[in-house]
Nucleic acid binder design. Structure first.
Lengths: 353, 353
DNA sequence: CTGTTAGCGCGTTCAA
DNA sequence: TTGAACGCGCTAACAG
């Protein structure tokens, strides 16, 4: 393969036509005589023409607006990483005149999500990236987007057959399966397991957790017989209540020495352990929130499953950009790697270079 | 943060000078009066100027040649991935007029490496990426590069204090430590371990393996008392000899049920096990060669440590590009993530998006 | 020392 | 249906 770079002018010269005609052929803009078309086509078939991206970027006049409907965040949490990925993409594609607008909502708050969807559908966008936190509001929004032919991608959660350009996220079932395999690798007869569950209902987040749990249980059924499994429901925010619940639980079940949390809030358990100067033999959870990472480094959490939130945000914007700006087809599902992070490799982990 | 994009013309207008002067200030090209400089500086301090990368790319007239001194490869092996990463970077930076030349050598062959270094030093390059397989030849080459002020980066192996612009690779000690932790997670009293060693000598590859082994042993000392450890030396290529050695070993040591290989050639052991329809309780090795991945999917290898060869190649070229083309400072060490791959997450693993 | 100018390759007029 | 011409933002050469 040669590195010789052909320009439109080169092609025009080789074909014996003008640059404008070549451009028309390349972009299928019509108004080209059969004869000219053939001549240009012939040259294009023979050489390996790749347009100069810089010239394209420089000459681009069109402006695009992408709307991102994602949860609001605080420093160091999951959606902060997603945001950073989106911002990274924004900078990278800034020269293509892509403007990114955010419609943020309170995570887990249906009204706030609905509000965000409504605003987004009123606004005119060329593409939409969204974390479909609630099903009904999402479908409502999609209806409008579809009539306007505005493409959209889902990140983190999926709603199948909703017509998304692409879904970007993890295979939840398998990540649960892996979590079990890692967590229970040093299991010995007689030890017990506790699943720390959540009390949210009916949200895609809940569905995701359910799938992870399914995968987790699937591993246990396949590999571990008669294991005693406890369940403890934790509150999202009520630390005092959790303190009470966990205190009682651990007192009554000293053999429950493996713990699993199927969302980011494994720090709730980690913090409890830390406050009581206690450790489980194994505690696994999801996502590299600062709090989680810190607790893992201190030994209260033994493993975290990472799902590349930053990459999700980045890929989301990039998929929209490929489709809208470059009219390229994109794949319909992009599964993120299932990263296994432990105390020892967490320091080398990064999402971007 | 506003998205308003300032151009050099904007700055010139705001500062009351011409675009040329602004350019001189931006690039510290001198020949600017104090007064003009101050005016431009003031404007620059107030706004958030980011040059348009496309315009830079388009206007760039200079051509660069990078030489990559890396091992030759076959489809699906480690250095193939490195190559793909380099090629990815080549395509991405092609518009900056960077030409990539390869000086490939036979992996592990000092003469071939020496030959490649010699050719590279005779050729005139603007930057060099190399996998310093042999110390002396490398130092010889570096001497010449340094007199010519040609920057170079190391990938995969490092030679410390050799003046490399950047070293890109893994923290070998820690990756060994992690390998032990993963491998021995379900260790039970009485089980035995076998280390499959290599017989290469004095190469940076050997040093890397040594470091991994050190980390591995460090974990064992910290966490597992009186473990019986065997050592088996495998030949790189002589399959028949290995067959013999392994056959005898496993016959005599039925309790040696954990195995570790500190390089890519864990497939040597995996293949043996497969041929004898046998499995170890745990077998760990390095790198996602096709052969290794296949054996892991089939259950003969339990875990592989990945070190992102593709990303290494990509980052290597990118570092050179940042430094040579954009005159940017680059970090001196870029440790790759230590990826933990098992049967279940291997299918979702990828290096690039 | 400083302003002006001619491209870089492509998209997009506009006149022929 | 076609070719010529302009401009995107920046760099570098040149003329004052």
């Amino acid at each position: 393969m040669t590195d010789k770079k052909y320009t439109i002018k080169d092609i025009a010269r080789l074909a014996g036509v003008s640059a404008g005609t070549v451009d028309r052929v390349l972009h299928k803009r019509g108004d080209v005589s059969i004869k000219s078309f053939e001549k240009v086509k012939k040259v294009l078939d023979e050489i390996d023409y790749e347009p100069n991206v810089f010239a394209i970027g420089l000459a681009a006049k069109k402006h695009y607006t992408f709307i991102c409907i994602v949860p609001d965040f605080i420093e160091g949490d999951y959606w902060h990483s997603v945001y950073l990925g989106i911002e990274r993409a924004r900078k990278e594609f800034r020269s293509f005149n892509i403007e990114i607008k955010y419609q943020m909502f309170q995570h887990g708050n249906p009204d706030s999500f609905w509000e965000a969807c409504k605003k987004a559908s009123e606004d005119s966008a060329d593409a939409v990236l969204l974390a479909p936190n609630f099903r009904e509001s999402t479908l409502e929004l999609l209806k409008i987007l579809k009539t306007k032919h505005v493409p959209f991608v889902f990140i983190d959660f999926n709603i199948e057959d909703a017509g998304a350009l692409e879904y970007i996220g993890q295979d939840s079932f398998l990540s649960g399966f892996i979590a079990a395999k890692i967590l229970m690798s040093d299991y010995k007869q007689g030890e017990e397991l506790v699943l720390f569950l959540s009390d949210t209902k009916d949200s895609p987040a809940e569905i995701q957790m359910k799938r992870r749990l399914d995968g987790f249980m699937h591993y246990l059924h396949q590999n571990i017989g008669d294991l005693k499994i406890h369940e403890v429901v934790l509150d999202k925010v009520d630390v005092d209540r959790n303190e009470l619940v966990l205190g009682r639980f651990f007192q009554q079940n000293p053999d429950a020495t493996y713990g699993a949390v199927f969302n980011s809030r494994v720090y709730l358990v980690g913090d409890f352990l830390k406050n009581h100067a206690s450790k489980m033999k194994g505690l696994i959870g999801y996502d590299l929130l600062e709090k989680n990472v810190e607790l893992m480094k201190q030994g209260y959490i033994s493993c975290l499953i990472g799902q590349r939130p930053g990459l999700q945000g980045y890929c989301g914007v990039r998929a929209l950009c490929s489709n809208v700006v470059f009219k390229k087809q994109v794949q319909d599902t992009r599964y993120m790697p299932i990263d296994i992070l432990i105390k020892e490799n967490i320091d080398f982990y990064f999402e971007f270079v």
